[in-house]
Structures are given as structure tokens and as C-alpha cells.
Design a protein around this nucleic acid. Structure first.
Lengths: 241, 241
DNA sequence: TCAAAAGTGTTATAGGTACACCCATGT
DNA sequence: ACATGGGTGTACCTATAACACTTTTGA
């Protein structure tokens, strides 16, 4: 409940005392997919508050750093991946969400191929681990809520935007693609219908190559063509998986 | 580009100097609909920076105020409407977006019936006016970008969420509903098909009343039933206009 | 009886769902 | 030859789009 508002002030006349305890941070929900499993990267806090608890990786935004850059930096520190942009989801700004002061946080997510994380990337954390989204431990702060919202946002977005291209190898089979969507969206697709729909997407290029050394009929490989994708949408097509 | 990051620090050990010039604000995109016109409420700034320019109404978030409450407060100050929640869209945090210091802003929108705004509600603004979304003047800060993003977000949301219920009278005709969607989404609906689709939405209750004193066949009135709407969706139905 | 907008019905097409069946490979 | 997953085809059903037509009111 806001109390009766004080006189309006311009930014430069606001008493600094009112804000000196406030800051903004980014929190990153880094999803990793591999072999029909969706995981999320969590750190175990090495310092107060919530020492020992699991939490989303995040950091304060530095004074001369863009908001989006801060999220990308956190991702970089953890994964060494330089060329990925995190997606902003929403901001969380309850007064009491951080016990040590006023911190508004902006939540971001990315979806990656699951891989080993170099442990030294986080000297400020006791531990860092992939956790299945089906078994999330108790989290520090309001990070459970943040994770839930980011998971929902990612699930909505993946149907329409190619945020999944990082997850599969450059060349992939349609079954791998189907399994990815089945895992992330927690639903089953009919094989024939999925293939029919996906074949109509011009930006999924069928290659001349096939799998080798599999003990069943080898599957044709496909790749995602970004240029065609852009054209496809500029022509007014909507993508929906 | 973030420079090489300094040693990680916990919140309480961060030098206050680094942050004393930073603050967070909310900016509100208040859409008003009336008679096939979509407008947005803008203020003319009465103080530096950008004095004289048009801008989105907004304010800094007070230290003991939730983020969402701040947006609702700004709306309240301008419109006297107490029972409306603004919808968060996204945050804007480029380093240079505010000339007087580091200010990260969180954008919100609401969609209302267009009405007269009491002018004294904004002593800090020279002027306050509804502007057609088709004729937006040059705006201060990055408010043009914020407005565009909020307009897109509102257009996406209105197809699936009943954010339009405030816009029409409690009792409305299907033609009024159709015109609202045609205006906001800038597209035409076929009358017959629109009515067929909308009649399948159980939460739109047909009343026994009709229009009176119209020089054509009087239209049946409908109302939106929130309780039925909730049930409708809990049963797994998706709403799409 | 006319204008204006409400309201209904008909048909064609596209897209989705369910399901059956054949194909190519390694063992 | 058979197990395993790849790959294709068909029949049905539902949602949408385009369009024509009838109805009810005030003037």
C-alpha cells in the first residue's frame, strides 16, 4: 500500500539517502537440454544471506553496464559462452524480496545444450549444478517464483521463436527435434503429424546426409537456416510448433 | 561492453558510491479506447530534462513501495482509478537512457475507457492529453521505444486475456466488441464469423435486454462474466479473438 | 417503404488428429 | 529373420473464411 505520496520531485532533487540502499540485479535462468531432459543451472550460495541454499545465478548490474549486458556477462562467467543473448522475462520488485536492502531484479533466461561447466567460473559459489526442472530444491529469495515465470515464458516462446537452435547439433534429425519439444512442453506429438507440420517450415532444410552406424533405418539430417527463417516470417508466416 | 569484471562482492560490501546515482522508475502506457479510436495518455514535461517534450507518465519507485504498486499509483494520480492493475511489460536499462544518472525503468500498460482526466492530477506536468496512437509526437528519453513495445504487448495480450473488459460498458453489443478488436488490432473481422466464434465463448452472457431508440434493428446486449471465464479456462479452453 | 445495422445460414477450404502401414539398417 | 526406429499415406473432423441472405427498428 503506498502511503499518501509526497511532493513530486525531479530526479536531481531526490535525497540520496532514500536510495542509497537500493540496487538492481539480474537473475539468470539458464536451461540446459540433453537427451530428453530439461535442466536448470543453479548455484549454491557461499555467503550470507541464504548461505548454503540453492539460488539462481545473478549479479548486481554495474554502474556503466547495460541491463542486457549484465545478464550476458553472468552467463559468460558461468559457461564461457560469448555469443548468446539472454532473453528478458520480467522484473521482480517487492520491497522485502531481499533481506539486506532494496533490490529490484530483472529475470532473464537462455536455453542451451547442456554441457560441463568449468567450476572455477564461480568462486563466489560453493557449488554449481544442473538440476532437473522436475526436481528443484528450495531456492533462496523469491527465486522459485522467478524460475517458474521464466519456465512459462520459455515454453511460450519456444513455440514461435527459434530459441531451440542452440540446443541441438547443427545437423539434427526430426525425431531429435520432436523429442526436444516433447520434453520442454511436456506433451506428446504424433510422429506423422509432427513431420508433416515441420516439413512445411521452409527454414528447416533437408540435407543429403543421413545418420550412420545406427541399428535401424538411418534418419535424414536437417539444419536450421536462419536466413530462410527471416524471409519466411517476413512473408507473413507464423511459426507454431 | 562490460569491462573485465571486478572481484565479486556481496551486496553489503558494495561501495555505495557506485550506486548512489542510480534509481528505478516506472513508466506507464495508459491506453484509452473510445468510439473506434485508440489513444494514449501523455504528459508534457514541466521540468528538465526534456522540458516541454511529451513523455509517458511515470515516477521513481519509492523506497518502501512495491514495483507494481508504483505503477498503480501513477495511474491513480492521473485518473483517480483505484481498482486497476497495470500490466508489466519489460524493463529498459541502457546506461545512457537518462541524461541525469543511471535510471532503470519498468514499463507498464493499462487499457481503459477513455475519459476526462482531472488536470490538477499532475502539477509536475505542463499539460496532459490523449494522443491517437496513429499520431504520436516526438517523445522524451526512450519513451518512443517503450510505447511501441507496450503497444505490441497489449495487442498480443488482448487476444487471449480479458484486458478489454474495462473499455466497454458493462453491457455491450457484439458489434461494439468487434469494433474494439478491429481498432486495436488494425484488422477487419467478418461479422458472421466473429459472432459465431464469440458465441462459443461461454463467458460472454447474452442478456434479455436490447438497445433502445436506435434507428435500426436493436442489438442484443451481452456482458462479460468473470466467474464463467475462469471456469472456461480451467477446463482447458484457450481464448483467442 | 427505405436506410441502416442486426442477425443467420451455406459452402468451400485448410489444418489438425488418429491411425495404419511400409522401409532401411545392424545384429 | 527380426527388432528398431525412420518415414509415408489416408480418412475424418473441426475451425475458419467468404459471402449471401433475412429481420427489425426509426424515420
Amino acid at each position: 500500500m503506498a502511503k499518501k505520496k509526497p511532493e513530486k520531485k525531479d530526479l536531481y532533487s531526490i535525497p540520496i539517502d532514500d536510495f542509497f540502499k537500493s540496487a538492481f540485479s539480474v537473475d539468470c535462468v539458464i536451461f540446459g537440454y540433453h537427451d530428453k531432459e530439461l535442466k536448470v543451472l543453479l548455484i549454491q550460495r557461499g555467503a550470507s544471506p541464504f548461505e548454503g541454499d540453492w539460488a539462481l545465478p545473478g549479479d548486481l548490474v554495474y554502474p556503466h553496464e547495460d541491463l542486457d549486458s549484465a545478464a550476458d556477462r553472468v552467463l559468460m562467467d558461468l559457461t564461457q559462452l560469448e555469443d548468446i543473448s539472454m532473453r528478458q522475462v520480467k522484473s521482480f520488485g517487492k520491497v522485502k524480496r531481499h533481506p539486506l536492502g532494496r533490490v529490484i531484479t530483472v529475470a532473464y533466461f537462455a536455453l542451451l545444450e547442456l554441457q560441463e561447466i568449468s567450476p572455477m567460473a564461480s568462486s563466489w559459489a560453493k557449488d554449481i549444478k544442473w538440476h532437473s526442472v522436475k526436481r528443484i530444491p528450495k531456492l533462496a529469495f523469491d527465486h522459485k517464483e522467478i524460475l517458474t515465470e521464466c519456465l512459462n515464458a520459455m515454453r511460450s516462446l519456444i513455440k514461435h521463436e527459434p530459441i531451440w537452435t542452440r540446443v541441438l547439433s547443427k545437423k539434427f534429425t526430426l525425431t531429435e527435434l520432436q523429442e526436444l519439444f516433447e520434453t520442454v512442453l511436456m506433451k506428446k506429438y504424433d510422429k506423422g503429424n509432427f513431420r508433416k507440420k515441420v516439413s512445411a517450415m521452409k527454414f528447416l532444410k533437408r540435407l543429403q546426409e543421413s545418420q550412420v552406424n545406427v541399428r535401424h533405418r538411418p534418419s535424414t539430417l536437417y539444419k536450421f537456416d536462419h536466413k530462410t527463417f527471416v524471409q519466411y516470417r517476413e512473408s507473413g508466416n507464423v511459426v507454431e510448433f
